[in-house]
Write a protein that binds this DNA or RNA. Structure first.
Length: 856
RNA sequence: GCGGACGUGGCGAAAUCGGUAGACGCAGCAGACUUAAAAUCUGCCAUCCUCUGGAUAUGCGGGUUCAAGUCCCGCCGUCCGCACCA
């Protein structure tokens, strides 16, 4: 074929995407003998259009998947859709479309966009969580978990929006109001479905230790989220001996510093007392109203209500502590009640100073400034609690002990005397999965007046969503559907109703990676096949899923392990969290009190020293480089980029310059540069037949083989920016070199080196090679080149000569030259001699193959 | 408030083990080719000086070391997560 002087990216993209499809190039080799590699990027929500963040995410995963194929692995690289969720229902309410139609249209549009990127994906495994063949199996798993005691129904307070008639997540409550309706949110007690993730709290925490290939940041975030605290739980008796309430503390050592007891406004005792006290009722209402506002947390004002009750100190029944209801004690942590030790807890101190309660020191504290010795006086001064280490004081039998010794002593005594016990408290809550929503997985249960709660028999799965739902009024369309929920009880045959709650969409994404590996029609997955593919070898996605999604998926995997369905406990052997794609903003101030007016990059003419608006030619303000977002209009549409530059330039730019875990600033100049490099490679690939006088070029051969090894190591470590730099450097070397057999060979090898990143260009160049020079018909099936170890090392190295640690000269010497020779050359060097100036060296340090440092 | 990460040219960055700071790219400058433009190619590109050399430079101040972007201590700044968690 005749060779074009320019690479026609658009035609090549289409041609090779069709060729891979036709050859079924990326089908998973199910029963293969090679080592497996399961490469997975977090599946997208089908919002309607892909954005640059998707392009970056899938470009990275694709490079790895293609590289693994080239290096002798059976690769599983699938794609699917996290297709349930609120936006579809909002669209239904706003535009009158059906959530299912809206979602499936979006999937079709985004699938077409993704395919234009030329991803090496096994599309035969595509799944969408909104289809019954997926969520029906999820219902089966939910029933299995129910049978194993991992599902619970509990009464729980929820944020209830009285206008939209729905439960809101905490993050949907803004300053006490619903984010959509603006209505004041009520706390409402509802019967909700829970998954018992707290059963695995310790195991989930322990397991983090084994995840060596996860970012420390993510492990730490999960650790904090699980929040393990060890301490003492004990009972207060009311003064006079009547049963009181339980409290939890991590500082039992400070028990002799107690000056009050405090309970949460939501504590049952507070609610009981409120029945006879309008003032307390009003106080509790005030606390609940303020509890959700952010400014309340910031100012941190401590509010209390003295109940008039008192409790006995557990170590001295004659010592009575007043009982307060306070706004900073949370009902859903510990027991919802505490004892207050103001000297050694900042919140308690703030509270005690405000309400003039006693403040007793029980831990000695280093005295400030010169005074010397420790502060041990019982009266505690100042507004800063002391939380550091020290010895116990003013504490009877504990005096002189360290904090840790005192904790152990108190716990031992409490357990001996029977008024308390050492215990562990978790921050992690059970996972509430009920949503009063239509567009989610129906929870497969039936409420029967005679039999109670009855699981839907597996033979009747899937419980399919009704198509004819009504979205014209707020509330749950399933609940008011005229017929759907009315069914016969599977147990007694009497009239019964379906559960109308649906599952949180995080449930859908907690096991999709299993279904990708194995998707039989009659069960969730085949354990044998799971054994071959799981765990996922490399998982790639955004840091925003560091806690919830990844924790839920880890929990779900453990739960299935407990059920005996899978062997593994950790689903993702290696995790990578990639940075965002960012862009400058362009705006103009609109005057006092008005928000600035933003412009899209399309409307702007950007030059080196500023930017102007195309419409009027006048300048605009160039703002900070921030995450692409619709509100700031700093978005770039991938389709437009693909139309203009093709997939390879877009992929290349996504991988260049910025380390993948860091943010990538998008720029017009950057994509232009990537485009120019694509063309430059095309010209280099045109030199594959140019052998010149046919000779060998040893230095170039070294560069080539160093690049083969270096690029492989970088890609393996996800250091794509470094791999890109090495390819650039090799291209520079090839262009500088005179034509030779080595150079022609380097040009051919370069095709393979860029193939994972620029697959269309690589195929096009490969196809132009004479058949004898191609190992396979397509690059997609070619092997990664083998680096010759003999060529990886130089035979000459640059040795730096330093005098007193400062670089004075350098010389090219044979590699591994003996120390004496190197030292001799350094001392003989004229620049060195000038700085040594005849002095006798005190010491000469020789670092082999690197430098000589002469100390005078 | 608690926890964490980061700070290197005009910009994105590299320096894998304490051993040449700034590879590679972007932008810029000068030149070649061209009627011209685009494309392409060549060279320059941290700062300062008394310029075949030298001094200063990895947020700031100390320290360890023959040698520090890298290790230690103390500040400053930016970003992120959690947040009245007892």
């Amino acid at each position: 074929m005749t060779r074009e002087t320019r690479f026609g990216a658009l035609a090549a993209d289409a041609r090779w995407q069709a060729a891979w499809d036709a050859a079924n190039s990326f089908a998973t080799n199910e029963g293969g003998e090679k080592p497996k590699a399961y490469i997975l990027e977090m599946f997208p929500y089908p919002s309607g259009r892909i954005h640059m963040g998707h392009v970056r995410n899938y470009a990275m995963g694709d490079v790895l998947a293609r590289f693994k194929r080239m290096t002798g692995h059976d690769v599983l690289h699938p794609m699917g859709w996290d297709a349930f969720g609120m936006p579809a229902e909002n669209a239904a309410m706003e535009k009158g479309v059906h959530p299912g139609g809206w979602t499936r249209d979006n999937i079709a549009a985004m699938r077409a966009q993704l395919k234009r990127l030329g991803l090496a994906i096994d599309w035969s495994r595509e799944l969408a969580t909104c289809e019954p063949d997926y969520y029906g199996q999820e219902q089966a798993l939910f029933l299995d978990m129910f049978a194993a005691g991992l599902v619970a129904r509990k009464e729980s307070y929820v944020n209830w929006d009285p206008v939209d008639m729905t439960v809101l997540a905490n993050e949907q409550v803004i300053d006490g109001r619903g984010w959509r309706s603006g209505a004041l949110v009520e706390k409402k007690k509802l019967s909700q479905w829970f998954l018992k993730i707290t059963d695995f709290a310790d195991d989930l925490l322990e397991g983090l230790g084994s995840l060596d290939h996860w970012p420390d940041k993510v492990r730490l975030m999960q650790e904090n989220w699980i929040g393990k605290s060890q301490g003492l739980e004990f009972s207060f008796r009311l003064a006079g001996g009547a049963p009181g309430f339980d409290v939890f503390t991590t500082r039992p050592d400070t028990l002799f510093g107690a000056s009050f007891a405090a309970i949460s406004p939501d504590h049952p005792l507070a609610e009981r007392l409120a029945k006879d006290s309008p003032e307390l009722t009003a106080f509790i209402a005030e606390c609940r109203r303020q509890g959700t506002s952010a400014e309340q947390l910031e100012t941190g004002e401590k509010l209390g209500f003295d109940t008039g009750l008192a409790v006995e100190h557990p170590l001295d029944p004659d010592w009575h502590l007043p009982v307060w209801v306070v706004n900073y004690v949370l009902m859903d942590y510990g027991t919802g009640a505490i004892f207050g030790c103001p000297a050694h807890d900042q919140r308690d101190l703030d509270f005690a100073r405000k309400y003039e309660l006693p403040v007793h020191r029980v831990i000695s504290q280093p005295a400030p400034a010169k005074a010397g010795g420790d502060e041990t006086g019982q009266v505690f001064h100042g507004d800063e609690a002391y939380v550091g280490p020290g010895r116990l004081v003013n504490s009877h039998f504990l005096d002189g002990m360290t904090v840790d010794e005192a904790k152990a002593a108190i716990i031992a005594r409490a357990e001996h005397e029977g008024w308390g016990k050492g215990t562990t408290v978790w921050r992690l809550r059970d996972w509430g999965v009920s949503r009063q929503r239509y567009w989610g997985t129906p929870i497969p249960f039936i409420h029967c007046p005679a039999c109670g709660l009855v699981p839907v028999p597996k033979s009747q799965l899937p419980v399919v969503l009704p198509e004819d739902a009504d979205f014209s009024v707020p509330g749950n369309p399933l609940d008011r559907h005229p017929t759907w929920k009315h069914v016969a009880c599977p147990s007694c045959g009497g009239e019964a109703v379906r559960e109308t709650d649906t599952l949180d969409t995080f449930v859908d994404s907690s096991w999709y990676f299993l279904r990708f590996a194995s998707a039989p029609a009659d069960k969730p997955f085949d354990p044998e096949v799971i054994r071959r593919w799981l765990p996922v070898d490399q998982y790639i996605g955004g840091i925003e899923h560091a806690i919830l999604h990844l924790l839920y998926a880890r929990f779900w995997t453990r739960a299935l392990n407990k059920l005996g369905m899978i062997d593994i406990k950790e689903p993702f052997a290696s995790l990578f969290t990639q940075g965002m794609v960012t862009h400058e903003t362009y705006s103009r101030a609109q005057g006092e009190g008005l928000p600035p007016l933003f412009f899209t990059p399309d409307e702007i003419n950007r030059s080196a020293d500023g930017a102007t608006l195309d419409a009027d030619g006048a300048p605009v303000t160039v703002g900070r480089v921030i995450k692409m977002s619709k509100s700031k209009k700093n978005v770039v549409d991938p389709d437009a980029i693909l139309d203009q530059y093709g997939a390879d330039a877009a992929r290349w730019f996504m991988l260049s310059d910025s380390p993948p875990e860091r943010d990538l600033p998008w720029s017009e100049a950057g994509i232009e540069g990537a485009w120019r490099f694509v063309q430059r490679l095309w010209r280099i690939f045109g030199e594959t037949g140019n052998v010149g006088d046919g000779g060998e070029d040893k230095p170039l051969a070294r560069k080539l083989h160093q690049a083969i090894a270096g690029v492989a190591a970088d890609v393996e470590a996800l250091g794509f920016n470094k791999a890109v730099a090495k390819i650039h450097a090799l291209a520079n070397e090839i262009e500088k070199a005179k034509p030779s057999a080595t150079r022609a060979e380097a040009c051919r090898t370069l095709i393979l080196l860029v193939a994972p990143m620029m697959p269309h260009l690589a195929e096009e160049a490969w196809a132009a090679l004479p058949e004898a020079q191609r190992s396979t018909a397509m690059v997609a099936d070619a092997a990664w080149p083998i680096a010759d170890p003999a060529l990886l090392v130089e035979d000459e190295v640059t040795i730096v000569f330093q005098v007193n640690g400062k670089r004075r000269d350098e010389e090219l010497l044979p590699k591994d030259a003996p120390r004496e020779i190197v030292e001799e050359r350094a001392l003989a060097n004229t620049n060195v001699q000038a700085h040594v100036a005849g002095a006798t060296p005190k010491k000469v340090i020789v670092v082999p193959n690197r430098l000589v440092n002469i100390v005078i």
